[in-house]
Design a protein around this nucleic acid. Structure first.
Length: 443
RNA sequence: GGCCCGAUAGUUCAGUUGGUUAGAACGCCAGCCUGUCACGCUGGAGGUCGACGGUUCGAGCCCGUUUCGGGUCGCCA
């Protein structure tokens, strides 16, 4: 009987380890990405989890016949001699001694995935063939970078003494109410898919002081646009004992700096493949909502009808303004009108028509909404009553305030949106591994 | 959902005023090429022009219906 120890010892090595194995015989595993046949030898390009490795087939040193069985798409173990690349400084290649075929494709690929980039195919087809498309090194780099963003968020917050939590996605009441919530049958009872972890993360404040969650949220909005998904990943945080909502903005700025540094250090390959223009982020400029409206009116000569929120064009203009004025890709807008913010938002003491809240714009698009929450029980109940809400329905949530919670606040950051704007995508679907929208539930 | 636009080879597209056998690029297949790296060269295969109906001697092209898709607005992360 074999004993399982949990320590998988792979006999094959990664491309990273080639440098210290020059002159040695090693094995590497991967999928044949491309075969370029020359007169009496061939380049066999192997695709591994993060690299593309050049292997050389030649009857001079190969004990294996390069026949029709060795084809693109085969999963293989290649054994051979590690040598320096003859034409590329600092690169290594493998002189093939043997190839063991582990698996063969049944059919050729429907798309060309072994060029520098995928042909410009229709979005619909692109998403239908997602698992094929992602085999292309440039395509898969998108979600490796997305991993880096989420990982940076997590690592930074853990260092700041945040606790990572998991909240339910099947809920009995929606956080913000409204019609844009998915209904679900739950053993004969009507329940909903969570639109936000808002209530749960607040409930954790008296317990852990600082919490965060990276998880999907669901919005049943009938919006058919290039920047909406019906399921997206929300990176949420909530922190207690704050002096003001500016503390939350400090944490977010710190997290973003950490994320971009992490990408620069550990995701160089991917940044290069995707030719990413990294934002510079020392400090993020801040402007009040009404001052921002003022700039739109006076600097950009735009007529404004809605003084409660920005439309997409206004956000674009503010993005341009922040770039020109401060050379910043980011802009915090604070003090949004109370009317447009949820019932748990804390109003500004000096001017209750506005809230202690903020949005973060990245290159002219909103990626975060955050703010300070009401912590006093009586104030919270009063605001809910003023809005005509049924206070009794929120009994379990209001236990938070009733039994005492420190001043606190938090934010939510859309993972697909930040990915989208970092990479300059025109459609958020490119930043979602398997997007869910009005028309798409497969793959 | 409203408005605008589109559907032609595996993929991206071109197709003139309605007129012979519907073209190109990439991919695929065959052959050639001592080091390519979006390799190169030569040749070949590949089409129910989304579907249904109509006008016409004749429809990829004009008209109607329908299906699928794209853009945009409402809303928001």
């Amino acid at each position: 009987m074999e004993k399982i120890t949990g320590n998988l010892q792979k006999e094959s090595i990664q491309y990273m380890e080639f440098a210290k194995n020059v002159g040695k015989i090693v094995s590497i595993q991967g999928i044949i990405h491309r075969i370029r046949e020359m007169t009496d030898f061939a380049f066999v390009i192997l695709r591994t989890s993060r690299d593309v490795v050049q292997c050389i087939y030649s009857p001079k040193f190969s004990n294996y016949q390069l026949d029709e069985k060795v084809q693109e798409g085969c999963s293989v173990t290649v054994t051979g001699l590690v040598v320096q690349d003859q034409t590329r400084e600092g690169r290594y290649e493998l002189q093939i001694h043997n190839i063991a075929i582990l698996s063969q494709p049944a059919e050729p690929l429907p798309l060309v995935i072994n060029k520098k980039q995928i042909d410009n195919i229709a979005l619909d087809l692109y998403l239908n063939m997602r698992s094929v498309v992602l085999r292309n090194p440039k395509e898969r780099a998108v979600f490796k970078l997305q991993e880096g963003i989420a990982r940076g968020f997590r690592e930074y917050l853990l260092k700041q003494n945040f606790t990572e939590i998991r909240t339910p996605k099947i809920v009995f009441a929606g956080a913000e109410g409204g019609a844009n919530i998915f209904k679900l049958d739950y053993f004969g009872k009507q329940v909903f898919l969570a639109q936000s972890p808002q209530f749960y993360k607040q409930m954790m404040i008296p317990i852990y002081e600082r919490v965060f969650e990276i998880a999907p949220v669901f919005r049943a909005e009938h919006h058919d646009t290039s920047r909406h998904l019906n399921e997206y990943i929300s990176m949420d945080l909530e922190m207690g004992f704050i002096n003001s909502f500016y503390d939350i903005m400090e944490i977010e700025t710190g997290a973003l700096k950490y994320i971009f540094e992490l990408l620069n250090h550990e995701y160089k390959n991917e940044l290069e493949l995707l030719n990413v223009q990294m934002p510079n982020i020392e400090s993020i400029p801040t402007i009040k909502f009404m001052d921002a409206k003022d700039i739109i009116i006076h600097k950009f000569k735009k007529k404004i009808t809605d003084f409660k929120d920005f439309d997409p064009e206004e956000e674009q203009l503010l993005g341009k303004w922040a770039k020109k004025e401060f050379d910043s890709d980011f802009l915090f807008v604070t003090h949004y009108p109370s009317e447009k913010r949820p019932f748990y938002a804390m109003d500004d003491q000096n001017n209750p028509a506005y809230t202690c809240s903020f949005d973060l714009l990245f290159r002219g698009i909103e990626i975060t909404t955050g703010g300070q929450r009401i912590h006093d029980y009586h104030s919270q109940v009063a605001k809910m009553q003023a809005r005509g809400m049924q206070v009794a329905e929120f009994e379990s949530y209001l236990m938070l305030h009733k039994y005492g919670v420190p001043p606190h606040g938090g934010l939510g950051l859309g993972l697909e949106r930040i990915t989208m704007h970092l990479l300059g995508f025109k459609n958020v679907r490119y930043a979602s591994l398997f997007p869910r929208d009005l028309h798409r539930v497969t793959p």
